[in-house]
Computed example of a mutant assay.
Amino acid sequence: MIQKIINDNQLLSIIIRHSFQKEGIEFFTPDDFSQQLAYMKRPKDYVIAPHVHNPVPREVQFTKEVLYLKSGKVRVDFYDEQQKYLESTVLYAGDVILLAFGGHGFEMLEESEIIEVKQGPYAGDLDKTRFEPVPSDQLVVK
């Protein structure tokens, strides 16, 4: 199952649920995203030819993050660019999420292990603007 969080025609997030399966390869991100996300299922003895990646100049404007929830249960709260709360969803062990645009916050509903992949180098305090979360009585979990 694939879940997309969209606000004002802008793709904020893509969630690949742990139950998703498909033969072959599928890219979930548009070609112009600075972080690409795909799923591959290949049969035994399938070969991906050895290769190197060529140097290609790229300009990254926004940090995009991919999180893999190795274990646990996490609520993700989504916000628009103006820090207005939109909705929440729950991630379970094995789920993968791409955070593309907008804001986001997390609450660990169980002890959780998360693997994060994002562009670098890390810019410290310049990398993000922190703000107050929505009060828990206003959450809308989908």
Rank of each mutant, 00 (worst) to 15 (best):
D95T: 08
R17Q: 12
I16A: 06
K64E: 10
T29S: 13
P133K: 10
S136Y: 01
H18C: 06
G105R: 11
I114A: 06
E132S: 07
D77N: 10
Q138P: 14
F28Q: 06
M40V: 13
V140Y: 07
F28L: 12
P121R: 14
K4R: 13
V90E: 13
G120Y: 04
E116N: 11
H18V: 07
K128V: 15
A123D: 12
P30K: 12
A93H: 07
I2D: 13
K128G: 06
V134K: 05
D95S: 06
V52T: 11
G72D: 00
D127G: 00
K128A: 14
S136C: 03
P57Q: 02
P50Y: 01
I14S: 09
V76S: 05
F101V: 11
E113C: 09
Y46M: 12
Q21M: 09
D137W: 11
E87K: 11
G94H: 08
I97D: 08
Q61S: 07
V52E: 04
E65H: 10
I14V: 15
Y92C: 03
P135G: 10
A38V: 04
M1G: 12
V56G: 00
H53F: 00
Y85E: 04
I15N: 05
K70F: 04
V56A: 10
Y39K: 12
A38E: 11
Y39Q: 08
D8E: 12
Q138S: 05
D95W: 03
E110L: 03
F101A: 08
I48A: 01
P55E: 13
G103R: 02
R75C: 01
T29F: 05
Q83K: 15
H104F: 09
V96W: 00
I97W: 00
P135V: 06
E113H: 08
L139Q: 08
L91D: 15
V141T: 15
